[in-house]
Design a protein around this nucleic acid. Structure first.
Lengths: 207, 207
DNA sequence: CTGAGCACTGAATCCGGATTCAAAGCTTTG
DNA sequence: CAAAGCTTTGAATCCGGATTCAGTGCTCAG
């Protein structure tokens, strides 16, 4: 079952690699990086521990790839939401916060893993990039908003970091694995609250 | 040199325990929790690895104690600053942010370890408490400020978390071990920026 | 002076994974 | 059908610390 003609072998190899990535991703989404041991990943594909190493340069690389692709996707979605959200700084920042917040609250465990779970240096480096992507989006929105005085004068870099921090910290209580799933009302209350907090902080004119 | 009369033995034991705590603390302040291995801690006291275990229930407990005492002290200092800072919400919040920020930027490595360094579950639990202490202080200030309309209506718990997040995230860039020491001007610029951000967010009336 | 009682010592051991690699399974080619 | 060339396998090995504990040193009461 595992071996086809050589013509198909390449495809097969890609499938297998992909399967490992998906397995790892599923494990992370379920139990965080901690749960994605090489053995667990292999198991989930009916593969052997050793074979993992013929597709990846070790666990860290594999998980980094999982992180990267998940992060890339998240950032893309948020960026799309921002782009499709009208031209005022308020609309764009609102889209950023709402989209980010709502998605985090839906894939709670995954979001927690990506944003907060203690992990080794390799993941930590990916995480830094990931957070920076959001900060960069925010910074751009703020800079533009500053240009035509939609916002109160301020350092856009600092403000964007602070926004990201405010959003993360307000969410983390709900994302922690041991905390209970928030009800729909709670979710909107939190996100609305954060949005308003950030709008005030940035001095968004008009509502 | 290590053994006195029994009358003094108790004191001696306390000294030794204390020495280990101090050694651990120094190591954390220098290289983070990661650097505070049992061997390193013991070394620094001319003690043996084994002896550590006659004073503590294992590394985690020892480090948790280090964390707790450092955290307790930090929180005390901040609380004192807040208390001694006049009665307006603005003054108090300003004191909270300034004190916390300035202290973090001075003991950068220690602050980073306590606020951000990835670590095991025991430290993580302590950290949660630590952060909550600050959030509680902030929440109290905000609640009071809300009562006599010094602040815009908002959920004080959420707002306080968001403030803590904004402050942390704005600082973390400067706290990371690999980032360079910020100049005095940079320090005040960051802290001033954060304070203003938070004041706006909370809707502090008057400046 | 002696041995009972503590505290100290650090080499040996344990632990939880990650990583390796010789052996074994398929497939294709000649 | 046999050999060559791949992938796969998973038990053995490695790794970085934490933890243990039999042996040793010191003090003091008797």
């Amino acid at each position: 079952m595992a071996y086809r003609q050589t013509a198909l072998t390449r495809k097969n190899a890609e499938d297998r690699r992909d399967g490992l990535l998906r397995a790892a991703r599923a494990l992370v989404a379920t139990g965080g990086f901690k749960a994605a041991t090489v053995a667990a990943i292999a198991d989930r594909c009916q593969a052997s521990v050793g074979s993992v190493y013929s597709y990846f340069d070790g666990r860290d690389r594999l998980l980094a790839e999982v992180f990267r692709s998940a992060a890339g996707h998240e950032v893309d979605v948020v960026r799309a939401a921002v782009t499709g959200a009208g031209h005022s700084a308020a609309e764009r920042l609102g889209a950023l916060i709402d989209t980010f917040g709502a998605r985090a609250l839906h894939g709670r465990r995954m979001a927690w893993a990506m944003l907060f779970e203690p992990a080794g240096p390799v993941i930590e480096a990916e995480r830094l990039d990931y957070r920076r992507s959001y900060t960069a989006i925010g910074e751009q929105i703020i800079s533009l908003g500053l240009a035509d005085r939609q916002l109160v004068p301020q350092d856009p870099g600092l403000a964007s970091s602070a926004v990201m921090g405010a959003v993360s910290e307000a969410l983390v209580g709900w994302l922690r694995p041991e905390s209970p799933e928030p009800s729909a009302e709670e979710q909107t209350r939190v996100i609305d609250g954060i949005r308003e907090f950030c709008f005030r902080a940035l001095g968004v004119r008009a509502a």
